[in-house]
Design a protein around this nucleic acid. Sequence first.
DNA 1: GCATGACTGGACCATTCGGTCTAGCCCCTG
DNA 2: CAGGGGCTAGACCGAATGGTCCAGTCATGC
Lengths: 180, 180
Amino acid sequence: MSTKDRLIDTAARLFREQGYHGTGLSEILKQSQTPKGSLYHHFPKGKSDLALAAADWASKGMLQIIDDSFAQAVDFKDGATTLCYKLGKLFDLHKDWRGCPISSMLFDQETNDEFRVHSDKIYNDWHARTIAHAVRLNYPTERCNEDTEALLLMIQGAWSISRARGSADIIRKIPQHLTL
Amino acid sequence: MSTKDRLIDTAARLFREQGYHGTGLSEILKQSQTPKGSLYHHFPKGKSDLALAAADWASKGMLQIIDDSFAQAVDFKDGATTLCYKLGKLFDLHKDWRGCPISSMLFDQETNDEFRVHSDKIYNDWHARTIAHAVRLNYPTERCNEDTEALLLMIQGAWSISRARGSADIIRKIPQHLTL
DNA sequence: GCATGACTGGACCATTCGGTCTAGCCCCTG
DNA sequence: CAGGGGCTAGACCGAATGGTCCAGTCATGC
């Protein structure tokens, strides 16, 4: 694993757990066993650069999970249910999946529009990917957009609430709320 | 307005906009025109004490909005729709309503269980209050719990996404997703 | 074998962080 | 008027922050 990848991996994990501002460079450097010079070589703009790269990395993981969930699904509801169960399991097993992989970035938006635009793009990617699976599974075209939106909306909300609650149950209950 | 209230009001606003770790004491002190000594007189435990008080204050505001929305509603759907429109309007008008009033606290949970428990309690308060209105409006008892949960789940998610998107449209669209 | 450039290692910097401490103001009561 | 407590005011602290800088290392090209 290259120095750069090690930095991204560690940063993604820590930002997810503690938030952008809650994670210091020193902690990232220490856990990834990297000196400061290397960070600023690979990410000239420092922390913010690293955060964008980490968000992209985390988004890839989420897209992969969406794909995996819908890959063998018989219909949209089946895929959505699998997705929620997978996310619930990740919540239980990994500290760094106890929350939206990218929302920690949002708290910089007031002063950093680049972050806002970037997270907007990532959310759109998730939505587009989910719609693509719905279409592939012959889900009614006129409801595709809004029903996938409701699914992602609830996943997003469930990440917050399950984190507060300390339990992933509410994530697994999402499929019940969908009008499928 | 007392010094204490001024501190809570300012802190609540700044924490909502920038997150807990993203807001320094110096900024709160400066904007509220308060010296440091006063803060530590009213909140002996400092920043964390202040954050809990600010979260309570913000939660009261949310509960008030829930009450206002359902007060004159003819049925649950009507009230839920009003609630979403009110939140959308707040998003448009006030920077500090561009996100969940209390979720910034969540990012401390890994190391601070007090924050986690507190936000859990606040979410439960919102849920309970919404259920109470649903019951009062003769919403089917067996669906009360899960349908109010879906509503709050989507509001929570919509706060994140509308923030990234820079638009409150998705908040106003929530009622469409509900099976009412 | 030597020069070059990508990369590492870490000392060092100014600034800001949350928090402590004490001097004094102001109002209330005796 | 005297005394005392609630509160204000801000100097001060050590630690940690993000960021800069450069000497040193190493593989690769000539």
